[in-house]
Computed example of a mutant assay.
Amino acid sequence: MVPLSSPHVSRRRAVFGGLLLPPVLAGCGTNAIAQRGATFDFADVAERVLPAVVNIAVSGEQTVQPPAEFRGTPFERYFRNRRERVQGAGSGFVIDPAGYVVTNNHVVGNAQRVTISIQGGQELQARVVGSDELADLALLRVESRTPLTAVSWGSSAAMRVGQWVMAAGNPFGLGGSVTSGILSARGRDIGAGPFDDFLQTDAAINPGNSGGPLFNLAGEVIGINTAIYSPSGANAGIGFATPSDLARPVIETLRRDGKVERGWLGVQVQDLVAEDPRSGRRAVLIAGVERTGPAGRGGLRVGDVVFAVNGERTETSRSLVRSVAAIPPGQTIRLTVLRDGRTQDLTLQVGRRPPGPG
């Protein structure tokens, strides 16, 4: 994984992104197991799932960016005409014996060559079936003469804070490694993007673990290790994983269509400090509207307060963005808004979200 901004430093000192990544965790299940506490033996789970966990090596070239002090000078062209080789490593896991592999988008990036190493040392060349920058997910495909060992998805929503988890991956290039811990928190927003909803764990996650699976005690994938919070770039006991309930539909869409198209309204939103006068609950303020965007054409205005999307309550800007993003472009959406002291419903046609991380 990469630090939550850069490979070693971020605004929140978290490790995020490309090739320095956190390991995956495994969750626990029954009360009987929980009562056994730290004495639980992960050996059976590890033996069963490790053959499906892969190491990912990437290589390619990128244009060298000129240092700030040379921009606007005759030396800038010299730097822009140069290219440098880039290499990196991460983790992933097989979800289909036919050769489909899940990892983080930042692990593969714009790599020109992606190599998958499976347990036993076999190396296979992979192609990127599709990737999604906003969810930081990618789906790869390899061709193997024999079926690969695969793992199944579990429900991240079924996990409770305090349950055991196990992470597997390729920390510091040491393939086939597992670590254990607990689910520390849910719904973490780490400033990575509009779809932040991370699981937090204290299982050791280090550079090279990005894209690896986080397992529950049944050996099901309940998360994909994506980032760590770290002052040094190494494990500090706080790792973040993309929940399986968020990742699974994205991966299924990538497998079917090769890309993910999300709904978009063309608005800037913010959480409303004041509470909904009707119910005492929070709402979302429309702080900006693009005149030529779907919202502008549909009559949404700056200052409107949104309480519901298609009849379902929405209390945060993040939940509103997600609700809109889940609606296919071209379909309609009904927003319940408060305007000039009166409640009304507005029906808008959802547009296609433009490319980019925002």
Rank of each mutant, 00 (worst) to 15 (best):
Pro3Met: 04
Leu4Ile: 11
Val9Ser: 13
Val9Trp: 09
Ala14Pro: 00
Val15Cys: 08
Val15Pro: 04
Phe16Ala: 15
Gly17Asn: 15
Gly18Pro: 04
Pro22Thr: 14
Pro22Met: 07
Ala26Thr: 10
Gly27Val: 15
Asn31Ile: 13
Asn31Gly: 13
Asn31Cys: 00
Ala32His: 07
Ile33Trp: 11
Phe40Thr: 12
Asp41His: 10
Phe42Trp: 15
Ala52Trp: 09
Val54Ala: 02
Ala57Ile: 04
Val64Lys: 06
Glu69Trp: 09
Tyr78Thr: 01
Arg82Gln: 15
Arg83Cys: 08
Val94Asp: 02
Pro97Trp: 03
Ala98Trp: 00
Gly99Arg: 06
Val101Gly: 08
Val108Met: 04
Arg113Asn: 14
Val114His: 06
Ile116Asn: 10
Gln119Met: 12
Gln119Leu: 12
Glu123Phe: 01
Glu123Gly: 01
Gly130Ala: 03
Ser131Phe: 07
Asp132Gln: 05
Glu133Lys: 13
Ala138Phe: 01
Val142Lys: 02
Leu148Ala: 08
Leu148Gln: 08
Thr149Met: 01
Val151Asp: 05
Val151Leu: 03
Gly154Asp: 06
Ala157Leu: 08
Ala157Asn: 14
Met159Leu: 15
Val161Asp: 01
Val161Glu: 01
Val161Asn: 01
Met166Ala: 14
Phe172Val: 00
Leu174Asp: 00
Leu174Gln: 12
Gly175Thr: 15
Thr179Met: 01
Asp196Arg: 11
Phe198Ile: 14
Asp202Lys: 02
Asp202Gly: 09
Ser210Val: 08
Glu220Thr: 04
Ile222Leu: 02
Gly223Tyr: 01
Asn225Phe: 01
Ala227Ile: 11
Ala227Glu: 07
Ala234Asp: 11
Ala236Gly: 13
Ala241Asp: 12
Ala241Gly: 09
Pro243Asp: 02
Asp245Val: 11
Ala247Glu: 04
Arg248Trp: 03
Pro249Phe: 09
Thr253Val: 10
Leu254Gly: 04
Asp257Gly: 07
Lys259Asp: 14
Lys259Leu: 12
Glu261Ala: 09
Leu265Gly: 08
Gly266Lys: 06
Val269Lys: 00
Gln270Trp: 00
Leu272Gly: 09
Val273Leu: 11
Asp276Arg: 12
Ala283Met: 10
Leu285Thr: 13
Ile286Tyr: 05
Glu290His: 06
Arg301Glu: 12
Val302Tyr: 02
Val306Ile: 15
Ala308Leu: 04
Glu315Asn: 10
Glu315Leu: 12
Arg318Lys: 14
Ser319Ala: 15
Ser323Trp: 00
Ala325Cys: 11
Ala326Phe: 02
Gly341Trp: 09
Gln344Cys: 02
Asp345Lys: 08
Leu346Val: 14
Leu348Glu: 09
Leu348Cys: 10
Pro355Ser: 08
Gly358Thr: 06
